[in-house]
């Protein structure tokens, strides 16, 4: 949270500085990250450096900052320890059509979400810029930001009526369903993203929830799959549409994604797509580590690693509390 609080003024300063002097982003001039660093007020240069993506020269801005890229590493394969921004090597996973040299640089307000005892949700601020080697085209660039939680199989059950009683009857397993998924975009997905590109990158929520081998055990697996999306939407874990990406001066973009209070632990992947006429020009991936910390971490680890000790501790706490209350009330009565 501290990182985000410090970052916001830096970015606002960078945005404010734009109309007055800087044509830089429209040309092949300094990378926007450097721009942000220059434009930031002297009071807050540190956070801007910390989270800035790798610059064009490939020099990591700060050796031990949490948001620093390791050159050549790819997001999903990156070691899970800590949250680090990992920049895709140029050209990989980023099909560039017709020699269009547009790339996207992006960063997150924080790469680590700590679930403490009082955790009640948090917000991730995603921002970045379009980097060009030639003057910008006329049209506004389209940007899609997705954040997805750890994905895994989930069991769906359906109630049916039999003998006048509603009970679970059919059930199936949906092989792939992320624990959290949010999409933010500059416009409606079906307008800014072609169907093929959507399929290739699985951007739409509908493509994230997949049933591979479910066809055998139920008649209509599709309705079970839709039920997953519906139930997860109700819980606030699947978010689409209302969140938007703002684009400033055809170059800078920013959005924020709210993580609800009921998220699970794991590595969350943030993807930033740069699009033109439905095609993905560039893709940037980073990892947000969501971790339990402190007491939460300790209790969870104990319950998994030493369940007997955990159970005995739970009993001891229960008996101590029962005895304590009994004694306290006895003392009160006297």
């Amino acid at each position: 949270m501290i990182g985000r609080a410090l970052l916001l003024p830096a970015l606002v300063a960078a945005l404010a500085a734009l109309p007055s002097g800087a044509q830089a982003p429209r040309t092949a001039g300094p990378a926007p990250a450097e721009l942000a660093q220059e434009a930031a007020s002297p009071g807050a240069p540190e956070p801007a450096v910390r989270s800035a993506p790798r610059t064009e020269t490939g020099e990591p801005p700060d050796g031990d900052g949490p948001g620093v890229a390791a050159p050549g590493q790819r997001g999903p394969q990156a070691p899970a320890g800590g949250g680090q921004v990992v920049i895709l090597p140029e050209g990989r996973d980023a099909p560039r059509e017709g020699g269009d040299d547009e790339k996207v640089v992006a960063a997150l307000s924080h790469n680590q979400v700590s679930i403490t005892t009082t955790y009640s949700g948090s917000e991730i601020f995603v921002f970045g810029a379009v980097k060009r080697s030639r003057p910008a085209r006329a049209e506004r660039p389209d940007v899609i930001v997705t954040i997805s939680g750890p994905s895994g199989p989930v069991t769906v059950r359906r109630k049916d009526r039999g003998f006048g009683i509603w009970a679970n009857r059919e059930s199936t397993v949906i092989d792939q369903a992320p624990a959290f998924y949010a999409v933010a975009a500059t416009g409606p997905l079906d307008e800014i993203l072609s169907a093929t590109e959507n399929l290739r990158h699985r951007v739409g929520l509908d493509l994230q929830v997949r049933a591979i081998g479910a066809a055998s055990d139920v008649e209509d697996p599709e309705s079970f799959r839709e039920a997953v999306i519906r139930l997860m939407r109700v819980r606030g874990l699947y978010v689409e549409a209302p969140i938007e990406v703002d684009v400033i001066e055809d170059t800078l973009f920013a959005t924020h994604v709210a993580l609800p209070a009921n998220i699970v632990e794991g590595d969350y992947i943030a993807r930033v797509f740069l699009l033109n006429e439905g095609k993905v020009l560039d893709l940037h991936e980073s990892i947000v580590g969501v971790r339990k910390v402190g007491l939460e971490r300790w209790l969870y680890a104990l319950s998994r690693e030493a369940p007997l000790a955990y159970g005995l501790l739970a009993l001891a706490v229960a008996l101590a509390a029962g005895w304590g209350a009994s004694e306290a009330f006895r003392a009160l009565r006297r």
Binding site: G152, T155, V156, R157, K159, V173, M232
Partner: peptide, 8 residues
């Protein structure tokens, strides 16, 4: 709601 989710 006829459907319910459970860990796999």
């Amino acid at each position: 709601e006829l459907y319910s989710l459970a860990p796999a």
